[in-house]
Design a protein around this nucleic acid. Structure first.
Lengths: 178, 178
DNA sequence: GTCTATATCAAGATAGAC
DNA sequence: GTCTATCTTGATATAGAC
């Protein structure tokens, strides 16, 4: 009975994931401790281990849900925009800026794919592939461009006053025309 | 007398930086602790604080030196190659793959610019700017592409068997022609 | 420039009772 | 499903002697 849901989580486990994600988004990755998560739920840290075997499994649950969410956002953006690559680029940046800590958790380290829900990683990738004219190499290059732009903006690497919009446009243009 | 060298470091401080960098490159960022650094030098951790005010200052010294090194590599690559953007892309990837942990320390978080040696961050940027035909937006976009490619490869995000070379070529081509 | 001793803090995780 | 009590580990950093 514990895992008939699509995400394989019990209702209580889902509450824990929600609390964890809220802490992550509000205060960043270093704030994401078992104690903090428990505290937010009004319980003690050891109790969490009745629901997840360890912290990594809990993080994987956050990441799985976030991938689904991101893919849905991407799909909608392409549907509603006229130029797929431009629409996707804008949606990519918006997601990263709206959820900086979550975005870094999702992208900035090796993935424990064995702990993720199946197929969850590919869905967003497929949207990019299609927007890039179903050219694998171009899709990967465009993805790297978007990821690089997002990370450089999140880590504050562009010079103060840099026109980040213009750099995005230039990149999108290059991958559309080039 | 302590800071007449170009990097502002005493000889002993430079030895400490070298030990720290070796640990970083061999075992990664979590291994970079004051205890480990001291151990490698045959001393105790508290002694390090006679040479650096805190760990952040020591990290900044590693980063400053690495930026200089990277800039020199980039400059040489452009000089020796015929196509600047391609030469620079290849050098960029080579540097990141040869020094994965160092590269991440340099790029993957906010920079404490106040602790870095002056101008050290701009030198590599200038090389990219020139290779991109002195177009600021294109230079930033190409930089983001390179950074994204490097990070996705380092974090193992491309599917197994993905032709990463081909994706690099596609991106370089787009920024050259597009 | 190095030492010992120590302060301070906080993390993930387990055992076993209720 | 939650609790208390605890283990184990390890980090940065300071004080003060030599």
């Amino acid at each position: 009975m514990a895992s008939s849901a699509p995400d394989g989580l019990t209702p209580r486990a889902r509450e824990i994931v929600a609390a964890a994600r809220a802490i992550l988004e509000e205060d960043g990755l270093e704030a994401l401790t078992m104690r903090r998560i428990a505290e937010r739920l009004g319980i003690r840290a050891p109790s969490l281990y009745k629901h997840f075997p360890d912290k990594e499994a809990l993080e994987a649950a956050i990441i799985s849900a976030a991938f689904e969410e991101q893919a849905a956002v991407f799909e909608r953006a392409v549907e509603e925009g006229d130029e797929p690559l431009a629409a996707l680029g804008a949606a990519y940046r918006r997601f990263a800026l709206a959820h900086p800590h979550l975005y870094r958790l999702m992208t900035d380290r090796e993935l424990r794919r064995d702990l993720l829900a199946a197929g969850v990683e590919d869905r967003a990738g497929l949207t990019i592939y299609r927007a890039a004219g179903e050219d694998t190499d171009r899709a990967r290059a465009a993805w790297a461009f978007a990821h690089g732009m997002a990370m450089l903006e999140l880590t504050n690497r562009f010079p103060p006053g840099a026109d980040i919009d213009a750099a995005w446009h230039e990149g999108i243009r290059a991958f559309r025309d080039g």
